Simulated assay, not measured.
Amino acid sequence: MHLDKYLLVLSAVIICVSSSRFLNQEWSSWKTKYEKKYVTSYDEAFRRQAWEATWHKVQNHNQKYEKGLTKYRMEMNHFADMTTEERNSRNCISNRKKSTLKSNIPLKAHSKDFHLPPTVDWRESKCVTNVKNQGLCGSCWAFATVGVIETQNCIKSKQLVELSEQQFVDCDSTNDGCCGGIPAKALDYVTHYGVMKAKDYEYSEKQSACMFKNDDALKFNVSKFYVLLGEENMASSLALDGPITVGIDASEDFQLYKDGIFTGECTEQPTHAVIIVGYGTEYDKEEGAEIDYWIIKNSWGESWGEKGYAKMQRNVNLCGITSMAASVDFV
């Protein structure tokens, strides 16, 4: 009897030691992959603890995915060493003057006679620039705005030109630089000033003095910018005119997204701006039904999600995706 207890305790110790060694190896590999370095041993210990909590969350979620209980996977990406509180507090949508957004900007509704194509993906047009990375600056609003302008300009001119997010961060006084902004207001800025090329006004991941040069700016023949109400209008605008900007709640689950169709937990309060570049429908074997999705382009680099992109469930206003949809008309 005593021998059985001894063997049970010994087995538990061996399992704990093996698990600890495995996590040590995983932690070391993860730090190398994402080039993570910490100033003090205390800071590293704190981040290691947060990382382990994330590791267990991701493992538990992905086990549900393997059983068909969820439609997307998570991964230990560059957000993995943040606490839940830190991930939930990330916000690059400015609240300044936000309440007046829809009263000051025109609305656009597309004709109900227009029949939506079953799928749209503007990446196939070769008019979508590579996925970019906003870094630590809360400039998602600038990246979303620039991404839409780049593609719209390419659709009209047949030339794909990378434009400057830094100009918006430094010079658009209607928004708040690295502290957040609203794409619809940035679209208004474009109509007045134009945008310099990225190579002439490079991104620095921080807000500095405005270095805008009018003579170097590309001017666009913009008839108007507008907001879109409802996912049907959003899909129509996307199919007819090109990518649109939207605000979403970039929740903790969304930040850890790897692939599949995101259907995770989030609120309807936008905290992050992204670009919708397409949509589609996928058959769900588990439910025996089709699920509609958006294709979004993010600004967290190609190491996040599906090489910087994600699929999000459509026609359910997931993460408040309808609340800040906007685009622009090029003549």
Results as ranks from 00 to 15, higher is better:
Phe79Met: 12
Met82Tyr: 13
Met82Ala: 06
Thr84Val: 08
Asn88Arg: 03
Ser89Met: 00
Ser89Phe: 00
Arg90Gly: 10
Ile93Ala: 04
Ile93Tyr: 09
Lys97Glu: 08
Thr100Asn: 13
Thr100Met: 08
Lys102Gly: 07
Asn104Ile: 05
Ala109Asn: 06
Ala109Val: 07
Asp113His: 15
Phe114Gln: 05
Leu116Trp: 13
Leu116Tyr: 11
Pro118His: 11
Asp121Val: 08
Arg123Glu: 09
Ser125Ile: 13
Val128Gln: 01
Thr129Ser: 11
Asn130Met: 04
Asn130Thr: 07
Val131Asp: 02
Asn133Met: 06
Asn133Asp: 14
Leu136Met: 13
Leu136Gln: 14
Cys140Arg: 05
Cys140Asn: 05
Cys140Ile: 03
Phe143Arg: 01
Phe143Tyr: 03
Thr145Val: 05
Thr145Cys: 05
Val148Pro: 01
Thr151Leu: 03
Lys158Glu: 08
Leu160His: 10
Glu162Val: 04
Glu165Gln: 15
Glu165Val: 12
Gln167Ser: 08
Phe168Lys: 04
Phe168Asp: 07
Val169Arg: 00
Val169Gly: 00
Cys171Gln: 02
Cys171Val: 03
Cys171Asn: 03
Cys171Glu: 02
Asp172Met: 04
Thr174Phe: 10
Cys178Ile: 11
Ala184Thr: 09
Lys185Gly: 03
Leu187Asp: 07
Asp188Val: 05
Tyr189Asn: 02
Val190Ala: 05
His192Tyr: 10
Tyr193Lys: 04
Tyr193Trp: 06
Val195Met: 08
Val195Phe: 02
Met196Asn: 01
Lys197Tyr: 05
Lys199Gly: 04
Asp200Ala: 12
Glu205Asp: 15
Glu205His: 15
Glu205Ser: 15
Lys206Trp: 14
Cys210Ser: 13
Met211Lys: 14
Phe212Lys: 10
Lys213Asn: 08
Asp216Pro: 13
Ala217His: 10
Val222Cys: 00
Val222Phe: 08
Ser223Glu: 14
Phe225Pro: 01
Phe225Leu: 01
Tyr226His: 02
